[in-house]
Amino acid sequence: MKRFLLLLRSIRRTQGEGPESERTSGERRVMTDGGTSEKRSTFQRWLDSDIVQSAPFWLPPFLLMGFFVYAAIGWNFLLSLTEYSGFGDPDYSNLGLQNYWAMLDDPGMWAATRNTFVLLVGFTVVCLIVGLLLALLLDREIRFSRSFRTIYLLPFALSFIVTAQFWRWMYNVNNGIINQFIGVFGLGPYSWLGSPKLVLGAVIFALVWQFSGYTMIIYLAALRSIPNDQYEAARADGASTVRMYWRVIIPQLRPAMVSATVTLVLFALKAFDFLYATFDGYRPRRGADILATKMVRESFGRSEWAYGSSIALMLFVLSLGVITPYLYNQYKRGNL
């Protein structure tokens, strides 16, 4: 949050910069330019400066995005301080932290937070591992390697609403493929999406199916950028394939892993579509409720707008906790 405010402040500084630099250059002109023929007004020069010249390009998109993203977050914060619920307009005259206190007393909140973190850790770690294995498998001379890549990435191109339909069918208690498969080994059948113990694992499995192709693509791009000499040098050093990957190649995938992790964690935080479609609405089975679903349910299901906003703000703060170090790190490395 502090970082965010700093950013905002630096923006304001930037915007104030135009007239300021104009003034200093004006002073300089008085000092050095003793009556030469070219007289350009300070206004004219200000118009020619790069910040003004470039403004028509970035300012309109910035204002549109800024309004919908940053103004909306500010507004959301304001709403979370009101008692706004039901129909009608929010009352902004009486602001307080009551919604945040209410969160502490809400057992559903604790359950949702716990589930969010389980989903976040389980989903992210499994996705990173599966994606890495896929990438290592494909990063060699293979016929049809592009076709394999295209197939593995295919689920990622589909809507969660679509994939949720497929997985409901896969997890179906009576004749779902999963139960039929484990039935071969004399197990089950289990109610994958009905049992509070199993449901979160089942959701994570389905999401890994959908996202591992994404992690694979990120790793593959990083693997492709490693020069061939390094493989050859490692081989010339007599390293076995496994050791070569472990000692030489995988350490170089760190930046790719970091950026994939950020994306996966942020997705896990806001995963809503899949759960909504899997459980036909705002109410996931007990054991699968996460902050994102609870937030939408409180606001749009129960019209507890203010309470929903306060959960939304929690989500935002959690995301900031991931984004800020990431962006700062990227800035430090000059990747921005």
Binding site: F62, V69, Y331
Partner: peptide
């Protein structure tokens, strides 16, 4: 100052839609 504006753009990618939906 363009880096600061840019940082706001990029952070916008990661903002959860729940935080703005109400």
């Amino acid at each position: 100052g363009q880096i600061a504006v840019l940082a706001l753009f990029i952070a916008g990618i990661f903002v959860p839609y729940q935080a703005v939906i109400v």
